[in-house]
């Protein structure tokens, strides 16, 4: 009672089974539930407001102390170990970095804007690119960043040459004098960096090879 052999069978035997998807690919290609994206958007807004408030708090504290005191709020030179410990600072900053990336990846984007964004990638001629205004904003921010870098480098060079505290010491001094506040400001910065400079979901934004 053996089954009849058909000409199709050898081809069926040699056909390869599809490879099981690797764990890393499953993680990278996992799609966040669409229904929850609206919630993540509002969480993003709240966390961004918190980060903004912490940055402003840090700026106001530093400027007000500078205006009302003559000496530094820490030892000279500032200590390298303070409270909270450095590993706590690093851990909190890493968590904030990951949180920033995840909120940026999972927040909802209006399909109208995302479609426009994808279509505009194909524009090759800058003169016909309708993103001139956005490009101008980005270039302006880039210019501000470069000017700031030049200013910080000048400050660092002058202070080092004249045996005055370099910028590194001001960072240590902030950690020494107000460890928790410095940690909050650093975590805010890392949260923003995680949102802006960690490449987004490759399934949505990476270029295809075709």
């Amino acid at each position: 009672m053996s089954a009849a052999v058909t000409p199709q069978q050898p081809a069926a035997v040699t056909r390869k089974e599809p490879k099981p998807e690797r764990l890393i690919d499953r993680i990278l290609n996992w799609q966040f539930p669409e229904r929850a994206r609206g919630v993540v958007t509002w969480i993003s807004v709240v966390l961004l407001l918190v980060a903004f408030a912490l940055l402003v708090w840090g700026m106001v504290s530093a400027v007000s102390y500078t205006l009302t005191h003559t000496g530094p709020p820490c030892t000279n030179p500032p200590q390298r170990e303070a409270s909270p410990p450095q590993w706590v600072m690093v851990g909190v900053c890493l968590l904030a970095f990951v949180l920033g990336h995840l909120t940026a990846r999972w927040q909802s984007i209006d399909p109208k804007h995302s479609q426009r964004h994808k279509n505009l990638r194909e524009v090759d001629h800058p003169e016909t690119d309708p993103r001139k205004r956005e490009a101008l904003i980005i270039q302006t921010l880039l210019l501000v960043f470069l000017v700031e870098v030049i200013g910080l480098l000048i400050i660092e060079a002058v202070t080092l040459s004249q045996n005055v505290w370099p910028i590194t010491y001001y960072v240590r001094c902030a950690y020494d004098a107000a460890g928790v506040q410095s940690m909050a400001a650093a975590a805010s910065i890392l949260f923003l960096v995680g949102r802006w400079f960690w490449l987004p979901d490759r399934g949505q934004n990476a270029r295809t090879r075709s």
């Binding site: 530093a62 400027v63 102390y65 200013g151 902030a174 923003l192």
Partner: peptide, 15 residues
């Protein structure tokens, strides 16, 4: 220190 904090953090706050 105030100037450094102001320069360093103000751009981030605007962004």
């Amino acid at each position: 220190m105030g100037f450094v904090a102001l320069v360093g953090l103000s751009t981030l706050a605007l962004l």
